[in-house]
Amino acid sequence: MNILLVHAHPESRSLNGALKDFAVQRLQSAGHSVKVSDLYEMNWKAAVDAADTTQRLSTTRFDVAFESKHAFENGFQSEDIGREQEKLLWADAVILQFPLWWYSMPAILKGWIERVYAFGFAYGVGEHSDTHWGDRFGEGTLAGKRAMLMVTAGGWESHYGPRGINGPIDDILYPIQHGILFYPGFDVMPPFVVYRAGSTDESRFARIRDELGQRLDTLFSADPIAFRPQNKGDYDIPALTLRSDILPGQTGLSVHVSDRKSESRHLTE
């Protein structure tokens, strides 16, 4: 299988750098083909601007979405954007690897998303009607591929627990897993998170490496997060709200993850 690893850490001798090297070796040893986009090494340009297109749609006003669409559809994208889109289309699975900085991904990785996820490539795809609101959230250009986050965090695991001060890790990563990965169609695997990253000695690193190896070995066989597809009946369209008979009275991010067995049991009681 083909795997793209997008790495966002400025220091190759960091824990992230070591995990990246281990992941590549483990995946290649299993027979996979691996490409790495090391964003800092590539000196990736994070900011979206008019230089992202070689031929402007308008020279008076830079409209990010429509300039992106015009460039993508007409072959006017800058070469770096096109190369990363080709990697995404080549890949059967994508791993985004980064340290959790200020409750999100580093700016350079966010900039990779903003520039590579062009209008017509990752969003603005499919028909919009009273029954189908675009090919997104389970459908889209990247449907049929898998994705996983490899994340390091400085805090303790309890800090990111259900009652932890930082908030549940699943909630913190929801905008990335649901909004960046599931949106264009990826099947999203549960994240691999390393807590207390700054307190990692050789023995702990060996344990982390073993745990990561097991996750990588099951990248194509384990079950993804059961995010609810947008256009398969769980949501009222065009309001895009969860149907009132599904988890009635419940709110929050967790309602967008399905527990089909318990919901089917509830509906038949």
Rank of each mutant, 00 (worst) to 15 (best):
L181S: 07
I237S: 09
D234W: 12
D201Q: 05
I225T: 05
I208V: 06
D217L: 04
D236H: 12
S244H: 09
A222M: 05
R215A: 09
G233P: 06
K232R: 15
F186S: 11
Y235I: 06
G198A: 12
I208C: 01
G213I: 05
D236F: 03
T241C: 05
P191I: 09
T218A: 14
T241V: 11
K232M: 07
D217M: 05
P190Q: 10
L212Y: 02
T218W: 00
R209V: 00
S203A: 14
R207S: 06
I237K: 14
A222V: 02
V193M: 08
P229E: 07
Q177A: 08
F227Y: 15
F220S: 09
F182D: 10
P191T: 11
V193W: 02
D223F: 01
D223Y: 01
Q214D: 09
T241N: 07
P238W: 06
T241K: 11
A226D: 11
T218Q: 13
V188M: 07
A239E: 14
F227D: 11
D223L: 10
K232S: 14
G233Q: 08
F192V: 04
L242A: 06
P224G: 13
P229W: 05
F205V: 05
I180L: 12
I225K: 05
D201N: 15
F205S: 08
A206W: 00
F182S: 12
I246N: 02
P191C: 10
F192P: 03
D236M: 10
D210F: 01
L216E: 04
P229V: 04
F192T: 07
P229I: 03
Q214A: 15
V194T: 11
G179W: 00
S221D: 04
D245R: 10
P190S: 11
G198V: 05
L181N: 08
G185I: 09
G198L: 08
F186E: 07
Y235T: 12
V193R: 13
R209N: 11
Q230M: 14
Y195F: 15
F182R: 08
F186P: 08
K232W: 00
R209Y: 00
D217G: 14
Q214W: 00
L212G: 04
E202N: 14
V194I: 03
R209D: 03
Y195K: 13
R204I: 06
S203D: 08
L242Q: 04
A206P: 00
Y235D: 08
G185S: 13
R243M: 08
G233Y: 04
P190F: 03
I180K: 13
S203Y: 00
P224E: 10
T241A: 08
M189F: 01
A239F: 00
I225G: 03
A222N: 10
P224N: 11
L212T: 06
E211W: 00
S199E: 12
D187V: 03
D210I: 03
